[in-house]
Each structure stands twice: as C-alpha cells, then as structure tokens.
Amino acid sequence: MTLPLVQINNLSLRYGNFVALDDISIDFMPGTCVVICGPSGSGKSSLLRCVNRLEDFGTGDVIFDGQSLKSAHNISKIRSNIGMVFQHFELYPHLSVMNNITLAPRYVNGINRDEAEAKAHKLLERVGILDQANKYPDELSGGQQQRAAIARALALEPKLMLFDEPTSALDPEMISEVLQVMRDLARNGMTMLVVTHEMGFARDVADEVVFMDKGKVIERNASGKFFDNPQSDRAKEFIDRVLQKI
C-alpha cells in the first residue's frame, strides 16, 4: 500500500484573531498533482507554507514522508526535500541565475561547485533558459525569472514541489511558458501542490482539485468532476465566477 507523502492532521493557524486555517485534515499521495483553489484569504497559501513549516502552525501537525514537522529538529534537511516556487519568484538579486541554482546544493548537500553547475546546466536546459545562466535576475523577463526559480527549487531533487500562485505576477503572454514547465513536471510524475487561479491548468493537468474557503477544505475531487459537477454550492459559485472572468 502506498503511503501519503504529505499528511495534514487537524491543522489550525491563526494570525491574531484571524483564523487562517481551521482544523484541516487532508493527505496527498506521491506522484499526484493537486491544485488548491479558492477565493482570496481562504488559506490556500498559508496551507502551502505549513507544508514546509515556513509558517509556525498552532495546533495539529504535518507529516512529510513519515516525519512530523512539528517535532522535527532537522527542519532544514526536511525542507531540502520540498521545493517551493513563490508568486514573486524570490530569486536572489545579488546572485547570477547559475549561483541562485547552485547555492543550496553546495551549502545544503555539500556538493562541489563543478558538480552543482553541471546539474544546474541540465535544469536550465529543462526549463528552457540555459542561455540566461550568467545573467542576474533583474536582466530576465518575469517568465524567465519564474522558470529560473523552478530550476532553483528542483536543484535539490525534491520529492515534493509547492507552487504558490506561480503565474499571478506574470504578464499574460508569459504565463504559458511557466505552465508548460509545470505541465512537464507533472507528466514526469513529480508530486505537486499548486495554489493557482489557472483553471485551465487545474482541469488539464491536475489529478485533483482542493477547494478552500475561510480556512477550511470545502471540497476535494478529481479535477474533471470538480469542474463538471462541483458538490458544494460555494465551489459552484466560485467556478462560475472564475469562468466568467475568462
């Protein structure tokens, strides 16, 4: 029997009086691509940040690959198995694209510079920006920066990739190039949790869709079923509104 890669048990998170996550229990199987969607402030990004403990959750726990994040003493080691891609890329502006990618392999895994660079070359080729390796982030377009950020996240060969609205800060014509890279990753069996408003991606690529509202998981369904026949009224409303925008 395959065990879930991520198990979230009774997770709650508060910012002062605001309840960002309210007693969430959900798990994610390896090799699946799950899109998490919902209105703004529904807790999607907070949930994602709890999966690698960038957010210190109050109650509950996240079990990643059999290890509890709450009681983990080696959180950095666990995080090195979880790649994360941010809405605003968060590349290091003082480092070249190559150094952005090789930094963690060198300092976290302790591999030498040559080996790290050889690996980075392959990753840059994979995301289609090998010719940008020696440039600095501010010399790249938004789409190229996000692809570099994906390469950086992949550099440690993570078991799980988290995408926090990876296309929200991009111009429309650059969205497709980033989605294409994500599509390829999903096709190659990477376990992915993707917070996005790209419903096309959710329908075509995701295995499942999780719909959240007010810090709770309202619905979880296979992506086809979610779009064709949403179970909850709130999800129906959300889909109608999002599709209207398109």
């Binding site: 960038l54 080691k77 968060e90 950086r152």
Partner: peptide, 10 residues
Amino acid sequence: QVKAALSTGL
C-alpha cells in the same frame, strides 16, 4: 527572501 532561502533547506 529569508523564506525563499529557508525553503531551499538553508
């Protein structure tokens, strides 16, 4: 930036 760095295992 700190969050991005931490997320890579630093």
